[in-house]
Each structure stands twice: as C-alpha cells, then as structure tokens.
C-alpha cells in the first residue's frame, strides 16, 4: 500500500473491549477498503490525544468499556470536538445510555446485536459521512432522555432540599441505625437527632422513618 493510497483510505478507530468483534470488524473493514485502527482500551487520556493528534474519519465506540475507560459516553464529546464522527456500537439495551451518547454528539447509536452485514453497512455509511440514524428515532431517544431527567429531578427535589446533616441522618436511618445510635456516634443529643428526623419526614412529606427510607430507595436517592 503506497502512502498515497493510505491517505485515501478512511481511517476508523475501534474502541471496544470485545476482542473478537474488534478483530473481525477490523479484518472486514480492511477488506472493504478502510483503514481500521484498534485503540487500546487501557487509557482514556491517551485515546483522546490519539484522536486529537490525527482525527480519524470515524470512531467506533463501545459504551460499557469497563476497567480504565469505564463509561464510553465521556469520550464522545472530546472525539467530536477533535473533528471525528462518533458511532456508538454497544451491547447495552439501555436506551437512556444510548441517548446520552447521542446528546454528547454521537452521530448514531447502534446495537451490536444486529446482523453483521447491517452493522458493517452502517459503519461504512458513517465513515463516509452519511446519515445512519433516522432523525425521528434520534428525536425519540433524546425526548425519552429528557423526559426521564425531568421526572427524576422531580422525584429528587425533596431530597435536594435536605440539609447535609439531614441527608446524613436519612442515610444512617437507611442503614437501620436508631436515633440513639446516631446521637451517640455523632456526640450530639438525641433530641437534636430527633428534630432532624422530623425535618426529614416533613420535607419528604412522609409519616414514618420507614416510609422515608422506602421513598429514598424508590427514587434511587440512596
């Protein structure tokens, strides 16, 4: 392959921890005339530097990368800012997660589970700068994400109104500690803790400590 030919080839950076998929995909992409590059999934900063130094046409990004990279969503924005398109290729079925990646600027989010032919076709289209995700589908996912965020903010609002000390009290209660245990551990009087418990109950609009803990668990505050 001459340097000139190499320049013509579109570069695709693959960021995924499923080695067999990475290897097969890079073999297939090479045969399709692209220039695939497999990124090390051990170092997020290095990955971003690599993209910034010489932005590839496309970054294929898994979301659940585990280990050092963790959540792939965080990598979308830096890659997009560097001038690369980002195509999310994921094993997750969590639509909110995919939507978050779209919000960060990914051009599409694709389920790894689709037939490999389709997968390859979408990757090729994306590398060539074509639209790979229906705008309506994109809108739907983003709308879903915003609706979810709004409802979550609503659920969490009462918990946000707790003072730091009241939050500590609620956490201690959720561990099954009694008012007297808490008072002893914090070296304060029981009546102080009791009034904090009352403040928690009234702010959360619940009638018992058990109900408060159940509410915190239900909305995922704990």
């Amino acid at each position: 392959m001459s340097p000139r030919e190499r320049r013509r080839r579109l570069r695709v950076l693959i960021v995924d921890d499923q080695r067999l998929l990475v290897d097969s995909l890079s073999l297939a992409l090479r045969l399709e005339g692209l220039d695939p590059l497999v990124a090390s999934v051990a170092d997020a900063a290095g990955l971003v530097e690599l993209v910034q130094a010489d932005p590839p046409a496309l970054v294929l990004l898994d979301l659940d990368l585990g280990g050092a990279l963790g959540d792939g969503t965080d990598l979308v924005a830096p890659c997009v800012a560097a001038g690369a398109r980002v195509l999310v290729l994921t094993g997750t079925t969590d639509e909110l997660w995919m939507a978050a990646a779209l919000e960060q600027g990914a051009c599409a989010a694709i389920d790894k589970g689709i037939p490999f032919d389709d997968l390859l076709g979408l990757v090729l289209s994306a590398a060539h700068g074509q639209t790979v995700m229906e705008p309506t589908e994109r809108e739907r996912l983003l709308h879903h994400l915003h609706a979810h965020r709004a409802s979550r903010a609503r659920d969490l609002a009462p918990f946000e109104s707790l003072t730091p000390r009241e939050q500590q009290v609620l956490r201690a209660l959720s561990l099954g500690q009694t008012v007297s245990h808490i008072a002893e551990a914090w070296v304060v009087s029981e009546s102080t803790v009791r009034s904090q418990v009352h403040a928690v109950l009234s702010k959360l609009d619940v009638r018992s400590q058990l109900e408060a803990v159940a509410a915190a668990t239900r909305v995922g505050w704990l």
Binding site: D17, Q18, R19, L20, L21, V22, D23, S24, L25, L27, A28, D62, G91, T93, K112, G113, P115, F116, D117, L119
Partner: peptide
C-alpha cells in the same frame, strides 16, 4: 457480556 460475546462470534463467523 453475553450480547458482546455473541456480537463477536457473529462478526467472526460472518467474516
């Protein structure tokens, strides 16, 4: 993990 592994197997078999 299972979905990722299956995707890898699918990609390899297809290739």
């Amino acid at each position: 993990d299972a979905r990722s592994t299956l995707a890898g197997i699918r990609a390899a078999v297809h290739t």
